[in-house]
Design a protein around this nucleic acid. Structure first.
Lengths: 225, 225
DNA sequence: TAGATTGTTAATCGATTAACAATC
DNA sequence: TAGATTGTTAATCGATTAACAATC
């Protein structure tokens, strides 16, 4: 994922927040009510100091000598990430990747609402993915306005990605989650995050090639489930 | 994607190599024979100095006063990434994500060979994905040995990911590309790269929440096509 | 030759880690 | 109170950027 930071919070810090959030959810599920930065660090393989530092950018969430109240911290980080807001999402491109994203539980689990799906292929248009109908991309602007879509997910071939991005921007989208391996050009007020899966596989190849019997542990890109 | 570096090449550098490689491919397709670090930097939105620095870790690939011969540099970076080697890949889990990965052109385009697909679901076992038959995960070890699989791709639900990883390791897998949002525990000699898509979407939410009219440009995770 | 661009060293910048006073 | 753990400042470490000599 790529994103240029603003304010003074580094991208590294922002990228760790979702991981803290997920961990706190798990702790909630396990019935754990209090966790120290040490415990969080153990579970995430992140330095406790790092965690405390990251959190300190946003406020004071812990109790000295005690730790963090899991429910409280989860709520706070959720708010920092904006997960308490109502985000309507549209996916553009119903190829295999688009379909996987449309069915990806993680999106709904984080509270995002998939409200529109688009494709250009007449064979695909009109079919259903989950409970949603695939719309003709010709009606992109119209439907985005109608359904108040804030986030567009680009899952079209690289050759069409910039065009789709332009259309999304023209339609008033607020942010883009891009899966096409191109350098997206969008106005500075439209944040976007790009994912490039091939980087992960290629770098794995690199590590396989360069580590005979060395110790490995590469882990920190991203993960659906 | 996450990976702990070895030797002295930083993960940041390794993660940029695939991007250089893709750019050089595009230049090849465009018939461009020579490119300067400046030109590469423009196309990738990376500092020319950064590019020269990254390449310098591996050797001297350019010609002073001239630039880089595209074909040569592409070949060199391909070799550094180990893309010249023959990698056999198996995907475990034929849910929507697994199916998307099985159909993901990027894998084949980089020269990886998808030689096995596994699932537990009897309904899915025996069906075909592309030209491959989905195998019963019960035969994982057997088939991995038979087909000489080096790379395992974990696309099963988080709850089963560690179990699958253990099986892969026992079967003698050399590296793992993991899509489950868990902290994988594997022996130090088995490199792995983890992808967590939800990080990208959550951080987009963060940037949308924290940048009213600021300028944005988040870009550097990963991207399929 | 003059101009361009690399490879590499030095300077800067930023992120991570260590240390510790504050305090629950 | 004594022990634990935070929040935060200082120290370290590493990565990026700038500068420039080498040279095509």
């Amino acid at each position: 994922m790529t994103m240029q930071e603003n304010l003074s919070i580094s991208k590294a810090t922002v990228d760790r927040l979702p991981r803290y959030y997920r961990c706190l959810r798990q702790l909630t599920d396990e019935g754990v009510e209090i966790a120290s930065s040490e415990e969080l660090g153990r579970r995430l393989a992140i330095n406790p100091e790092q965690i405390r530092k990251d959190l300190a950018f946003f406020g004071q969430f812990g109790k000295k000598g005690v730790g963090y109240y899991v429910a409280e911290l989860k709520e706070s980080i959720g708010n920092i990430l904006g997960l308490d807001q109502h985000w309507n999402v549209a996916i553009i491109g119903m190829g295999h990747l688009g379909a996987a994203l449309a069915n990806y539980q993680g999106i709904a689990r984080l509270g995002f609402h998939l409200v529109a799906i688009f494709d250009v292929n007449p064979v695909v248009i009109g079919t259903r993915v989950g409970e949603r109908r695939v719309e003709d991309i010709a009606y992109l602007a119209e439907i985005i306005a109608e359904r108040d879509v804030q986030i567009g997910v680009i899952a079209v071939p690289a050759a069409h990605a910039q065009d789709v991005a332009d259309q999304l921007v023209a339609a008033g989208i607020r942010g883009i989650w891009n899966f096409a391996p191109i350098k997206l050009q969008v106005p500075p007020n439209v944040p976007f995050v790009s994912e490039d899966l091939s980087v992960g596989l290629s770098s794995l190849s690199y590590y396989l090639t360069h580590t005979s019997a060395e110790n490995e542990d590469l882990s920190d890109k991203k993960l659906p489930d």
